[in-house]
Design a protein around this nucleic acid. Structure first.
Lengths: 130, 130
DNA sequence: CCGTATCCGATGAGATACTG
DNA sequence: CAGTATCTCATCGGATACGG
């Protein structure tokens, strides 16, 4: 970034050069984490609510992604010793610091989709800016 | 955004709920695209420069990622009809609109890594904010 | 209600050798 | 110089059945 001295042959260097983006992607990447984070950013949710709300996710994947986010200290899992059992998930303080990043990604993604749809509609099969 | 559409027609709803994040991740996600985008955000680069600079990437993956970014209209590939051949890659106007998002991701990722390293150093085996 | 366990196909990604 | 072509293995993600 500042200078590209490629004398260091470590992948660690590559990650530093990638400006922390790789670290962010390691936490929020994957198919389902955006959906989970987007929902929890609005507040606490129960397991069943997440499962019902995120259309198409399997229980296996939901649990796996929640466990990863918990391990990464982005969310917390609160178990209520009741019958029937109840488990709530919420963002940690660290998780809430993601908001500017999530907003930026959401904004650009929406803009990008509109742009792609427009160019597709206008030029149909022809890509004239290539 | 690209490849999920075939299996489940309801995924469209999920992606809208995910606030465009999925669209962004479809474009910038993956192991090598952060490294490529980060470098091209500083200006034009030749194929060989990218290959030399991004430690550990195989030619196969470099070409594949560049082709995807080109298809997504994020970068352009400029071929100079010279001997020896020369090919330059640069961001498109659309690609340059990613900067706020890339910066936000970079900033959060760097902050996150510092945070994780600190809590590891300080609390060792104990996680007290759980 | 809130998960695990198991199986399996699709995709991502690395190594190596070759080419216009 | 700037790529292709194959082969291979690891990981991601889906379906289904079962467990506390």
């Amino acid at each position: 970034m500042r200078k590209e001295t490629s004398t260091n042959a470590l992948n660690e260097k590559m990650m530093i050069d990638s400006c922390g983006m790789s670290s962010s992607l390691a936490v929020i990447g994957g198919r389902w984490k955006p959906a989970i984070l987007c929902r929890l950013s609005y507040g606490t949710m129960r397991y069943g609510e997440l499962k019902k709300d995120i259309i198409g996710i399997s229980e296996r994947m939901l649990v796996a992604q929640l466990r990863e986010l918990e391990k990464d200290q982005i969310i917390t899992r609160v178990v209520f010793p009741e019958v029937p059992p109840r488990v709530e998930y919420r963002l940690t303080d660290l998780g809430r610091t993601m908001k500017p990043m999530l907003d930026a990604m959401s904004d650009w993604g929406n803009m990008y989709r509109k742009h792609i749809n427009q160019t597709q509609d206008l030029s149909a099969t022809v890509l004239q800016d290539k």
